[in-house]
Amino acid sequence: MKYDCLIVDDEEVLSQSTCEYFNLFGVKTAWVADSTTCINFFQENSAEVILLDINLGNTSGFDLCKRLRETISVPILFISARTSDDDMLLALNIGGDDYIKKPYSLSVLLAKVKAVLKRYQAQDGKSVISGGIKIDYELRRVFVQGQEITLKSMEYKLLTYLVENKNRIVSKDEIFRKVWEDYIAGDNTLNVHIRRLREKIEQNPNEPRYIKTVWGTGYVFEEDKQ
């Protein structure tokens, strides 16, 4: 069965209320409480976005995220009462696309999930070629100098937006609005994604040819003519 959203959280009352709220507003959602049930869920079902708690009883959402990323590329949004930057950076570095702190507003969380679902709907099948970067929208594949690279969902969204606005300075605020589609994401989140993206598309991430930093403003994707 195909679902829009899967919640993985051992807080039963909160998870059930979130699940019911999402379903009420047309986002088909399921809920599981632990890692084993989550893995079993994907043997017979699919979901387009995952809301994943860090604390899952005797297991960790971090470990589950690593396992899921071996076979699943859909967006994973961490939801957690943990507030440290270390936890957030770890979540993003192992494959998470966003980090949402508890307690959360159901209406705000629903809006974020809807934005993610809208963002990853199938596009029109065109390809964009800029310098040594080719983006195939239909297959959601990215090639650098003819070699295919693997991008996580938010990295893909960030790259496509920068490429489509090449040779123009894109402010951080604009990226939050157009890529994350809100202002909740912070500078640390953006910096982590830029760094990971550079590591995948740049020959030397410390001296980028494509994604340049405009200090105090944002970033610019400069088309490489080489």
Rank of each mutant, 00 (worst) to 15 (best):
V179I: 06
W180H: 04
L151G: 01
V74P: 11
I7S: 02
I94V: 15
T83P: 01
N167P: 07
Y161K: 03
I79P: 01
H193D: 09
Y120K: 02
R196I: 12
L51W: 08
E181K: 11
T18A: 15
S105Y: 09
Y120M: 03
K114T: 10
L24W: 08
V49L: 08
L14A: 12
R196W: 03
L64C: 02
V170F: 01
T36V: 11
M1D: 13
V13Y: 11
E207V: 08
E20C: 00
T18R: 06
I7V: 15
Q147R: 14
A111D: 14
Q123S: 11
N58F: 03
S15H: 07
E222P: 00
P208M: 03
S127Y: 07
L162P: 02
G125E: 12
S73A: 13
N165L: 01
I79Q: 07
F62K: 04
K2N: 14
E202N: 04
D173S: 11
S107G: 05
E207G: 00
F41S: 05
N204I: 09
S84E: 15
N167T: 10
A122Q: 15
T59I: 00
L56R: 10
F41N: 05
L90F: 01
K114C: 09
N206W: 05
T37H: 12
E155N: 04
K225D: 14
L52A: 03
D182P: 01
S15A: 14
G216Y: 08
I72A: 00
K112V: 04
Y183P: 00
E70R: 04
F221D: 04
Q16F: 10
A33R: 12
E12F: 03
L89G: 00
N191A: 12
F25S: 10
L51A: 09
V192E: 14
R209S: 11
R69V: 05
I129Q: 13
L158P: 00
D224T: 07
K118D: 14
K28M: 13
I201D: 01
A122T: 13
G26F: 10
K172Y: 09
E11V: 02
T59A: 13
I169C: 09
N23E: 15
Q145S: 10
N93H: 10
F78R: 02
E11N: 12
V13H: 09
N191T: 13
E44M: 06
G146E: 12
I50Q: 06
V144H: 05
N93M: 08
V179C: 08
R141G: 04
G146Q: 10
G186S: 13
L92N: 05
V27C: 09
K114Q: 15
P205S: 04
N58I: 05
I79D: 06
L162Y: 05
G57K: 11
P75E: 11
K134I: 10
G218D: 11
T71Y: 10
G95A: 03
L51I: 13
W180T: 02
P208F: 01
S35H: 07
Q147W: 00
P75Y: 08
S107I: 14
Y21F: 15
S73I: 12
Y21W: 13
D98R: 07
G146R: 08
F22R: 06
F22L: 15
D98E: 14
P75Q: 10
I175R: 03
Y183H: 11
D124A: 04
F78P: 01
P208T: 08
E70F: 00
Y161E: 09
A115T: 12
T59G: 04
